[in-house]
Nucleic acid binder design. Structure first.
Length: 363
DNA sequence: CCCTCGATCAC
DNA sequence: CCTCATATCGAGGG
């Protein structure tokens, strides 16, 4: 029987906390970090906000205009997202975190897993200590507070880090897993989102205890094989996913909001070509080749569409990317009845860069 | 098996 | 009124 000790770290209200660090006077009032779209004015969404803002009902993902309305009468700050600054702080934090585990897995700018089985000598008491030291270190060196969860697998560690926020430290030992999960809402399981929650709610399934009563057969019918077994196991606190060092991304994509809704090829093309440039730059920097190109769009009614094509050979050429994107854009617009709000390009099926070689060059 | 596309999640 | 980026699954068609 092999058992593990897994830790999950999540930086509290990360982007907004970064802003508070460089301007401490912000701490006393609501702070919203905004992603302004290209439409001007307050078009765009809230990326993150601090807890003061949350008291007024502001949430991430919310349109900026909504948030402003909620904070109308309050002295608050709406700041444009400064990703390179957040990236810098994130990098420093990750460098520290890494040292606390046997294996480190980067999940995102504000999130990471550690396998601390060895470092904790399989003791959850020692693990708790490691968790607290990690929190202290991040706080003293960067001024960032974070929430840490520790459990026997990634699933439990992640649920734990979310359990008490901000500045939380939650430890759930193997024999406590059942009692910890049972009363919680199914939504606390990562992977169960709005849609899944709605469908299960129709069956009167609200708590994880309820979820546990479902037969794998019925889950299979509702959610497909893979999802079903994930949900079945998750409701029982079971998860075997290893903590693994992440290599490069499997895909890169860029999407932007058009200045105005349109279905005019000539109007949209320049934007697509710019996105191609950005992506191709990344591809070259990362020493990659792509074999699949996708053009994706969001329509006026906010539904989305995509068209993709595989290339004969992997490529890293801008011309190749532009050529394919252009054809895909033509195709997708031809079938369009509603207008386009947002347009994006994605490259995938990535491989390591290999110098141009043809069959004949081997002779 | 390979490809395309929509859906879902969650950042 | 509705950002941006990544990963994964399943259906449907070859």
């Amino acid at each position: 029987m092999s058992s593990r000790v897994i830790l999950h770290v999540d930086f509290d209200y990360f982007y907004a906390q970064c802003e508070e660090i460089r301007k401490p006077e912000l701490k006393t009032r609501p702070v919203c970090v905004c992603i302004f779209s290209d439409r001007g004015g307050d078009s765009g969404a809230i990326a993150t906000c601090n807890y003061k803002a949350r008291e007024f009902g502001v949430k991430s993902g919310m349109p900026i205009v909504f948030a402003k309305r909620k904070l109308e009468t309050i002295n608050s700050s709406f700041l444009p997202a400064d990703f390179s600054y957040y990236e810098e702080i994130s990098g420093k934090a990750m460098a520290i975190i890494q040292e606390y585990g046997d294996v480190f897995e980067y999940v995102g700018r504000d999130e990471a897993f550690l396998d601390i089985t060895k470092k904790s000598e399989m003791s959850f008491e020692k693990a708790a200590h490691i968790g607290q030291q990690l929190k202290n270190k991040i706080k003293s060196s960067l001024g960032i507070s974070c929430s840490v969860g520790i459990g026997p697998n990634k699933l439990i560690a992640k649920i734990c880090s979310d359990h008490k926020k901000p500045d939380g430290l939650t430890i759930v030992k193997p024999n406590e897993v059942r009692d910890f999960l049972s009363p919680q809402l199914i939504r606390t399981i990562p992977g169960i989102g709005k849609k899944t929650e709605e469908r299960l709610d129709e069956l009167g399934i609200n708590s994880i205890k309820d979820l546990e009563s479902l037969q794998i057969f019925d889950l299979n019918k509702m959610f497909g094989k893979k999802n079903a077994s994930y949900i079945f196991n998750a409701s029982r606190g079971l998860d075997e996913e290893p903590v693994t060092k992440r290599e490069g991304s499997l895909q890169y994509s860029r999407i932007v909001t058009l200045k105005s809704d349109s279905s005019d090829f000539e109007f949209i093309l320049p934007t697509v070509l710019e996105l191609c440039k950005e992506l191709q730059k990344i591809i070259v920097e990362e020493n990659k080749m792509f074999r699949s190109v996708t053009v994706q769009l969001v329509q006026t009614d906010l539904t989305s569409k995509s068209r993709s094509r595989m290339l004969k050979n992997p490529s890293n050429s801008l011309e190749e990317l532009e050529k394919n994107s252009k054809v895909l854009l033509e195709n997708i617009l031809r079938e369009q009845n509603t207008q386009v709000r947002r347009i994006g390009v994605k490259v995938s099926e990535l491989s390591e860069f290999k110098g141009q070689s043809s069959l004949t060059s081997y002779f």
